[in-house]
Amino acid sequence: MIEITQLYKKFGKLTVLDGLDLTIDKGGVFAVLGPNGSGKTTLIKCLLGMVIPNKGEVKYHDKSVLKQWKYRNNLNYLPQIANFPANLSVIELIKMVKNLRPKTANENELIEKFDLQPFLKKKLGNLSGGTKQKVNIVLTFMFNSDLIILDEPTTGLDPIALIYLKDLIKKERDNGKTILITTHIMSVVEELANEIVFLLDGKIYFKGSVTTLKAQTKQENLEHAIAQLISKQYQPNHA
């Protein structure tokens, strides 16, 4: 469903994506992992068209997404930091996003699930980080799209909200959706991910299931397996 070939992106002198190739098939949860600054967000933003790659091709449903915009109607994105216009209220923001997308939305169910009713008329600038993240989740999951991209969705959530979020992701996965998720919380990965995509030095360093990764690194525990992959970055002459 997603096909990325020879993707290059530099920010000034810093090379973030260095000839990255990645194919993602339809259906399932794909965990995009990697050390800090390995280009996870940049990769996602290239797919969204927010970052413009220097070179390479990004295809979604066999069509190039570069300089296109209509394809975004068929994907939902949860940004890493929930930066919302501070002077809008929650309900105004939800209405606005609904108004901008020619699609039906089921926001009420989600508002109820995350207990956002009391905050609907509050200004976004006055909300706590966790509540903002819940609004972020509602905005992302209220539309029905083939692809859902979640950039650090667990930030600031309390344990109950985290359980609800995991349920939501599982539900969407069982509906045949493709979900890309970046996170540093390994329990989430272990519980949800069908496949792991590991980024290092702007390339895909590993792609496969959790079991394959454990076998390859000879580690029992996923956290240690990932740590071993990351530790290669700290050694000279790696890869």
Binding site: L48, M50, W69, Y71, R72, Y77, P79, F84, P85, L100
Partner: peptide, 16 residues
């Protein structure tokens, strides 16, 4: 001031 708003819009199906 509207940077956040712009970023929100950029992820929607709207032309830049």
């Amino acid at each position: 001031n509207s940077k956040e708003f712009t970023e929100l819009l950029l992820a929607q199906p709207i032309k830049r």
